[in-house]
């Protein structure tokens, strides 16, 4: 879900990550602080227009919120029941706007560029003992581990299924944790053997 980058040459692709992140932070905060349905709806339209600018198909935009559809439905139903249609629409639209906006940044920014600019920003914290290179290595690794953990979880669940244990949380979580630590040990060896100086 984090390897979202879609290659392109649009204005948004060429913008450097720093300002893009700053714009995201400001826009997200603004969205959160305003409480008007109209403004929120306009924001969604504006964000979708930005997808056009970035040459990202609407299908990709929809794919960003599809996994959350059922949450949207629940939110909408609950808010409608308790607080009326306007608030329900507002809450769901605001959520959609936030996710679409954050996804637009990830879709148009390579993870490595994002990490590079964060590393540059982190140099400011060097005097208090922050090592930017180590932080950026940790971020890259974390992003790589997420899909791998998902796959290990599936494998473990399948293995335990043959023993009728797939419903036992511990029977799945314990081997998963042990394999994850083993993977981390192997990855440290690989990083060391590829010449990384700590």
């Amino acid at each position: 879900m984090l390897d979202l980058y879609t290659p392109g040459t649009s204005m948004l692709h060429r913008m450097s990550p720093g300002p893009k992140m700053a714009a995201l932070a400001i826009a997200a905060t603004a969205l959160f602080l305003q409480e008007s349905l109209l403004v929120t709806a306009l924001a969604v339209v504006a964000i979708l227009a930005l997808y056009r600018v970035a040459n990202i198909p609407m299908k990709t935009a929809l794919a960003q919120i599809r996994p959350l559809m059922w949450i949207f439905v629940i939110f909408f139903a609950v808010q409608w029941y308790f607080s009326g249609l306007t608030l329900a629409a507002y809450v769901v639209l605001r959520l959609a706007a936030l996710i679409l906006l954050a996804s637009l940044v990830t879709l148009t920014t390579r993870a490595s560029d994002m990490i590079d600019s964060m590393t540059r920003a982190l140099r400011l914290f060097k005097p208090i003992g922050v090592n930017p290179d180590k932080v950026s290595l940790a971020i890259s690794l974390a992003l790589r581990f997420i899909p791998v953990l998902g796959r290990i979880a599936t494998e473990v669940r399948e293995a335990q299924k043959t023993r009728g244990l797939e419903r036992s949380i511990i029977a799945v979580a314990m081997p998963l944790a042990i394999r994850a630590i083993k993977m981390a040990d192997d990855v440290s060896d690989a990083i060391e053997s590829r010449g990384y100086r700590s």
Binding site: N131, A142, S188, E192
Partner: peptide, 22 residues
């Protein structure tokens, strides 16, 4: 902080994120 420490930190960032997929 050793390489191993960095990798472990990354692993638990990923683990916390992966738990969010439930």
């Amino acid at each position: 902080m050793t390489i191993k420490d960095i990798v472990y930190i990354a692993l638990f960032v990923a683990l916390t994120a992966a738990l969010g997929l439930m």
